[in-house]
Simulated assay, not measured.
Amino acid sequence: MVTPEQLTQLIQASLPDAIVHVQDLTGGGDHYEAVVVSAAFEGKRLVQQHQLVYRGLNGVMATNELHALALKTYTPDQWSANPLK
């Protein structure tokens, strides 16, 4: 089982400027939602943004510690304009 704090650290290790918020969706420690804000997403399509996040999570994904991750990715400008934050 992986914790929200561990997921946050792994994402920030691969995207050092990222603001990351991770929430356990089921309480079981294997289904999460992550909101990630990073300047590294500038000019990238959504799938490319998600690939950047997943690169940092390959270890936990390969071991099945993490079964599901819903991602919401934003550039800093998109995040500033996001009325739902």
Rank of each mutant, 00 (worst) to 15 (best):
S80H: 09
L25D: 05
L10G: 04
M61A: 12
E5G: 13
Q78C: 05
P83M: 00
M1T: 15
Q51D: 09
S38R: 01
V60F: 07
D24W: 06
G27S: 05
A40K: 01
Y54I: 13
D77L: 09
G56H: 04
T73P: 02
V37G: 06
P16E: 00
A34L: 08
G43Y: 07
T73C: 05
E42S: 13
Q78F: 02
N82I: 08
Q9M: 06
G56A: 05
L7Y: 08
V60G: 06
D77T: 14
V47A: 08
D24Y: 06
T26Y: 01
I11S: 07
T8P: 09
W79A: 12
P4V: 07
G29C: 07
K44D: 03
Q9F: 08
M1Q: 13
V35K: 07
Q78S: 08
V53T: 12
T63I: 02
E33G: 11
A70S: 13
R55T: 14
P16L: 01
K44S: 10
S80E: 08
Y54L: 10
V53Q: 02
T73H: 02
H31T: 15
A18C: 08
Q12V: 13
L46K: 12
H67K: 12
M61G: 06
A68G: 14
V60W: 02
T73W: 01
G43L: 02
Q23L: 07
V2E: 00
A70T: 15
W79M: 06
T75D: 03
N64A: 12
Q49K: 11
H67V: 13
D77Y: 05
E5N: 09
S38E: 01
L69K: 09
L84C: 07
H67Q: 10
L7N: 10
Q12G: 13
V60Q: 02
E65Q: 15
I11N: 08
D24G: 11
Q49G: 15
K72G: 07
Q23A: 11
G56R: 04
V2F: 06
Y32W: 12
I19Y: 04
E33T: 15
Y74G: 00
V2L: 05
G43P: 09
P83H: 04
Q6C: 06
Q9N: 12
A68M: 06
D77C: 03
Q23P: 00
L25C: 13
A81I: 01
V53I: 10
T63F: 00
R55C: 12
L71R: 06
E65K: 10
Q9H: 13
P83Q: 00
H31V: 15
E33I: 10
R45M: 10
M1K: 13
A18M: 04
Q51C: 07
